[in-house]
Design a protein around this nucleic acid. Structure first.
Length: 225
DNA sequence: GCCCAGGGGGCTC
DNA sequence: GAGCCCCATGGG
């Protein structure tokens, strides 16, 4: 028999895709904006991240050079709406300093790096952990790196599809080892998971009645059991 | 007005 | 290497 995980992961993808369709997900107007967004969205709602990015745009701060030059206190005020503003200002500084010193702010150069090496580099930058690294790899650097977030864990836990250990790396391996590396699909899969997590499978009150995954989900199966 | 969301760093043991 | 606290906002 074929790999059972591969089958269920593909079935879940197909079901979500049939239910919601293409998400056209590109969380930012440019790859650089995506990198900033990946940091700003840490523990923050995307609506607040949009406010922070709008502030940066208005202040002419959507370039690596401008962000390197700006006063960190002023930067903190601009990103205020996304929360943790002092921490995030320092993180953005670290990100653009790395981007400039290692790649000369050249996106194409960054994209020529192999996925594993680039991931290790990102993880060494202050403020970039595993989820943020994978978001940048997938949505800015065009690398097939599966993004795990709170929605992913919650939804797949409810479906009973879980790795042996509840660590980020184990969750990522579950997807990376059972899906063919495909940038488009990883992009779409994560977008569908986020959409489903927000609209249907929220933490407080999952709407199991209208959930397209309810047939394979333990949480929503109270009717028959 | 409280409770909750939740990624990453840094410290302790 | 697991456990805990800190960072701060906005929405239920």
């Amino acid at each position: 028999m074929k790999n059972p995980h591969a089958e269920i992961l593909n079935t879940i993808y197909d079901t979500l895709y049939k239910c919601y369709g293409t998400q056209h997900w590109w969380p930012g107007e440019t790859a650089f904006e995506v990198m900033l967004g990946a940091v700003l969205t840490q523990s923050a709602a995307w609506t607040n991240v949009e406010k922070a990015i709008a502030n940066l745009k208005e202040a002419g701060m959507l370039s690596p050079d401008a962000l390197r030059k700006i006063d960190v206190e002023r930067l903190a005020k601009l990103v205020y709406p996304s929360g943790y503003f002092n921490a995030k200002a320092a993180k953005l500084k670290a990100l653009v300093n790395w981007y400039g010193s290692e790649y000369g702010d050249d996106l194409q150069k960054l994209r020529t790096r192999p996925i594993g090496a680039l991931r290790d580099e990102l993880l060494a930058v202050y403020g970039i952990g595993e989820e943020t690294a994978d978001s940048i790899l997938l949505y800015a650097a065009d690398k097939p790196s599966f993004v795990i977030d709170a929605y992913t864990r919650r939804i797949f836990q409810r479906l009973g599809v879980v790795p042996q250990n509840d660590k980020y790396s184990d969750w990522r391996d579950l997807f990376m080892e059972n899906l063919k590396p495909d940038i488009r699909k990883f992009n779409e899969y994560h977008a569908l998971v986020v959409h489903h997590g927000k609209e249907v499978c929220s933490k407080r009150e999952p709407d199991c009645e209208s959930c397209c995954l309810r047939e394979m989900c333990s949480t929503g199966k109270r009717r028959a059991d």
